[in-house]
Each structure stands twice: as structure tokens, then as C-alpha cells.
């Protein structure tokens, strides 16, 4: 393996100074599950690694309706957070199936999005949850919507001297549910063929449904049980991973659904539209046609799962096999 120096600053300022000093020769390292692998695979060859492990507080999770996470929050910490499971379920769905326990114990959310793999599992949920990220350099500090963060495969707006310091997820509207589905070939240690995250806010003060929803039923059956409730979609965000060079929002699909009464036919159309917006490609990990087809299937399913989570908030279990 290529040799490098390994620096462990104790404050954020110290880290920013080092980053400024070494410029392109340095690379930040969080958990290292991407960085060390990339060095071993000779994809990158930094002379210096600057570790963020010793900087206090970067692994904090604060919740006061909205959620603030430091970049060094591990996937395992997210997986274990009841607050996140309950309020930002899509994110729990994502970390639950990310890599393995060993990886999740070390890998961080900041690292996951900064590496900016099109397959990054937390990216689509963060897009669906409307997250913003705070970036800091010696000179500037700015907060941007996560949509603007990704610029290409492995590329972000992060400049050489920037550190991602915070991820903020706004307080969801009342009656909001979210869900993420990682479409993968096995139950663990996998990358998604496709990732689909949906957030739905229903326009109704109290949505009640006596029937136990089962997503194995056709959508219309489920919606039928809500018919008397006239469920409207107040807000929706649909995000896709591995469907384009960067994690993306399906904006047109969202427009179709926003402020509309939710119906079987409409969800069908929404999913079709999302599939049209996407630009999936062929790779050894999956074929474009299949990815596109799965968008049609999984957007619907995640929308249903989101509705289910509004109705049965106490049962925010991971959506195992949904058929």
C-alpha cells in the first residue's frame, strides 16, 4: 500500500489549517472504510491523511424537531437511534443495510456522502428528507441544500480546503412518513442496484385507518381502505440512487403528486414519471432497463411504505421484502 503521513488534529480549526496547508496533497479521513480501500485500490494516492476522529463533538446527534448530525456520526449510531428510526425512517432504512456491522461501526455519514458514490446509501434518504449540509473552510462557511452538494460520480462541491461540518434535516410536516429501499442482490455487504427514497406528508390532521395495511396487497386495496379519508399529498420528495451520475430528485414525479389526492392510478403515473426522469446506465452491477423498471415498482412501494408509516408510526420496521 502507498505510504502516507497520518495527522490527527484535535480541533476543527487545526484541521482546517492543515487542510489549507497541504491542499491537494491531503485527504480527509473519517472512518476510512472508503478512503483506505481507495488507496489500496490505487484510485487515490494522497501524501497526507487528516483524520477527524480526535475532534470532539463531530459525532453528535441533536434533535429538537429538526435533526443535526455531525459528519462523524457512524452509521451504527444512526441505526441505533430511536429518534431517527421514528422521525426520519428512510435514513434508518438505509443504514440498516449498509455494508456490515463492522463497516457501520466505523463508517460515517459525512464520509458516505463526501465520497459521493452514485450508490451511496444515505444520499437518497437525505435528499428525500430535505437535508442541508454545512461546509466550512478557513475563509468561508456556507449551508446548502444537499441537492447542490453532489456534482458527479465521486464529485461534490467540497473544495480542497472544505470540511463538511454538519448535516441538518428539517422538522418534517405533521403526518409525514419516509422510506428507503435498497434494491440489492443479497442481504448484506452489497451496493444497491438501485436506491429509492420517498417522503410523503399527508394533508389531514388525523389520518386514521382501522385496517392493518399490508403492502403485499395491491395499492388500490390499501388506498381503498383510506377512501373515506380523502388523503391528499401535501408534500412529497422522491429521491433515487444509482439512477443518474449523482443521487437525484425526481422533480417531475413529485409535481404530479404534490397537492393531489393519492390514488392507485396517480401513484402509478408518478412512478412512471420518475422512471422517465432517471438516467440509469448499464454496468456490471445492473442493467439500465432493469433499473428503470425497478424505479416504477419501488417508487410506488416506498410511497406506500411512507403512508403506512404515517398511519402506524409505532411500527417503523425496516421494509423487508415487500411483496
Amino acid at each position: 500500500m502507498k505510504k502516507f503521513e497520518y495527522l490527527k488534529p484535535h480541533t476543527l480549526d487545526e484541521a482546517l489549517i492543515l487542510l489549507d496547508q497541504y491542499g491537494g496533497r491531503a485527504r480527509l479521513i473519517a472512518g476510512g472504510t472508503d478512503v483506505i480501500v481507495m488507496i489500496k485500490q490505487k484510485e487515490i494516492s494522497p501524501d497526507v491523511l487528516i483524520s477527524l476522529q480526535e475532534i470532539p463533538d463531530l459525532d453528535r446527534i441533536n434533535y429538537n424537531g429538526s435533526l443535526s448530525m455531525g459528519p462523524m456520526v457512524t452509521h451504527r449510531a444512526i441505526e441505533k437511534s430511536e429518534i431517527i428510526r421514528k422521525n426520519f425512517s428512510a435514513l434508518t432504512d438505509a443504514v440498516d443495510v449498509l455494508g456490515s456491522v463492522q463497516i457501520r461501526n466505523v463508517a460515517t455519514i459525512g464520509g458516505n456522502i463526501s465520497t459521493a458514490a452514485p450508490s451511496a446509501d444515505t444520499a437518497a434518504p437525505l435528499l428525500a428528507l430535505g437535508a442541508r449540509v454545512k461546509l466550512k473552510s478557513m475563509k468561508t462557511e456556507r449551508t446548502i441544500p444537499i441537492e447542490q452538494f453532489f456534482t458527479g460520480p465521486g464529485e461534490t462541491v467540497l473544495q480542497k480546503d472544505d470540511i463538511l461540518t454538519e448535516i441538518i434535516i428539517p422538522k418534517p410536516l405533521p403526518n409525514t412518513g419516509s422510506a428507503y429501499w435498497k434494491h440489492q442482490r443479497r442481504g448484506a455487504l452489497d451496493l444497491p442496484i438501485l436506491g429509492v427514497a420517498v417522503l410523503l406528508s399527508l394533508d389531514k390532521a388525523t389520518v386514521t385507518c382501522s385496517d392493518l395495511l399490508c403492502t403485499a396487497s395491491p395499492i388500490s386495496t390499501v388506498l381503498h381502505s383510506l377512501e373515506g379519508d380523502e388523503v391528499f399529498c401535501k408534500e412529497v420528495r422522491i429521491a433515487l440512487g444509482v439512477a443518474a451520475p449523482t443521487p437525484m430528485r425526481a422533480i417531475d414525479a413529485e409535481k404530479l403528486l404534490r397537492s393531489k389526492k393519492i390514488s392507485d392510478e396517480l401513484l402509478e403515473e408518478v412512478a412512471e414519471t420518475a422512471a422517465k426522469e432517471a438516467q440509469p446506465r448499464d454496468s456490471i452491477r445492473g442493467e439500465a432497463w432493469y433499473r428503470r423498471d425497478m424505479i416504477k415498482v419501488l417508487v410506488k412501494r416506498m410511497a406506500m411504505k411512507s403512508i403506512e408509516r404515517v398511519l402506524k408510526p409505532e411500527e417503523t420496521v425496516f421494509p423487508v421484502r415487500l411483496w
Binding site: 497520518y6 490527527k8 479521513i29 476510512g32 472504510t33 483506505i36 480501500v37 489500496k40 491523511l49 483524520s51 476522529q53 456490515s100 456491522v101 463492522q102 463497516i103 461501526n105 466505523v106
Partner: peptide, 11 residues
Amino acid sequence: TVNSCIFPALE
């Protein structure tokens, strides 16, 4: 648990 093969010794 960690995968020691990709874990920097200094950490």
C-alpha cells in the same frame, strides 16, 4: 467489531 484490514493502526 471493526474490519482491521482497513482500519488505520494509528486510530
